[in-house]
């Protein structure tokens, strides 16, 4: 009986979580557009514009290009969205623990995070347009570029926590949640973690493929690149995947760097009912997500021009790699207690 209840709650939870992340992701997109417009001396579209876009896309016909490989072409948007929704099951949201927290850790999340990009690459190649092919090539280069700094950030921090708390599973989000990284390091490690935060924020921009790292789409160069042939429902899936991706990436950053919740703090002063605590924590989570999205997405994309592919590889493999290396050394020194 207990098992059935567990499965039932997981299924219902997945639906709720999926609906929440899609709706919230679209709202973040709306906020992003509004702020960006205000920064550009424009009025901008209303906050509900992304919802309208999705509605309109869902109503439209999905065109299949003549030289496309239909089953790959049609399945890649679904894979993209599905894998992103799956990631959410492994990440804690607010004070609610991850739905499948026991069955997967950060490594699963990192692998699942690659799948949308792979789906886009395959979808781009299968659509049979030269623009998509160039876009897919670029997406691949971008993927290779940002994976290295991202892996360095996560594994260095996990190593640090593992040394401090050997009895806990190092690569699970619960450990990160329990021992916030800022409390577990001294001065040098603090600087290192700060550098890592900047690195991961820049990785987020590339993961979301926003200016200055939006080369796979690059409207004026290759006409939306990988998405050029997609239309209607298929494109709506990608649109939703993009929205969910914002939530997912922000949730990962929050889980690693800002796992703080408001309800424990409040309960010291007032007795807080559990449901109220959850609500407050989710609202706080949403607030943190919006802040991260604005920093990693809106500000960067409004104030920078698009970089070229060689410049992006240089940014990730030289500048950010060096930065992560320095941060790694700082944290290592901190762990060894040299100073």
């Amino acid at each position: 009986m207990n098992e059935i209840f567990e499965i039932f709650s997981a299924v219902v939870g997945t639906f709720v979580l999926g609906a929440f992340s899609i709706l919230f992701g679209l709202s973040v997109k709306g906020i992003d557009r509004k702020i960006s417009a205000r920064m550009q001396w424009r009025i901008g579209s209303p906050l509900r514009q992304p919802f309208r876009d999705v509605r309109k896309l869902l109503l439209k016909e999905s065109v299949l290009p003549k030289n496309a490989v239909s089953w790959i072409y049609n399945s890649s948007p679904v894979i993209s969205l599905a894998s992103l929704l799956t990631i959410l099951l492994f990440i804690p949201i607010g004070s609610i623990p991850a739905l499948l927290g026991g069955s997967g850790d950060i490594i699963v999340v990192l692998y699942l995070l690659i799948i949308p990009s792979i789906a886009i690459i395959i979808g781009g190649y299968s659509s049979g347009s030269p623009f998509s092919s160039v876009g897919a090539q670029r997406e691949m280069v971008l993927l290779i570029s940002y994976e290295l700094p991202l892996a360095m950030v996560i594994f260095t921090l996990a190593w640090r926590l593992n040394i401090l708390y050997p009895s806990y599973s190092a690569l699970s989000f619960e450990t990160f949640q329990k021992f916030p990284i800022w409390n577990s390091v001294s001065f040098l490690g603090f600087i290192g973690a700060g550098i890592f935060l900047i690195v991961i924020l820049l990785v987020t921009t590339a993961e979301l493929a926003k200016v200055p790292f939006d080369i796979p789409e690059a409207e004026t160069e290759i006409a939306e690149g990988v998405y050029v042939e997609y239309s209607g429902r298929n494109y709506a899936m990608f649109y939703l995947a993009d929205a969910v991706k914002i939530v997912v990436l922000s949730a990962i950053i929050i889980a690693i760097f800002f796992p703080y919740n408001l309800s424990p703090l409040l309960s010291q002063y007032y007795p807080v009912a559990p449901w109220l605590g959850y609500t407050i924590d989710i609202l706080f989570f949403m607030f943190k997500t919006i802040i991260i999205a604005i920093i990693a997405m809106t500000f960067l994309r409004t104030s920078l021009a698009r970089l070229k592919i060689d410049q992006i590889v240089k940014v990730y493999w030289f500048h950010l790699f060096t930065a992560s290396l320095i941060a790694m050394i700082l944290i290592a020194l901190d762990t060894m207690g040299v100073f």
């Binding site: 920064m39 550009q40 001396w41 200016v211 939006d214 690059a218 409207e219 004026t220 021009a305 698009r306």
Partner: peptide, 16 residues
Amino acid sequence: AAHEIGFDTVFHYSWA
């Protein structure tokens, strides 16, 4: 020109 290199903010500024 700004729009072509993906710098939409400058595009809006110049046109304003």
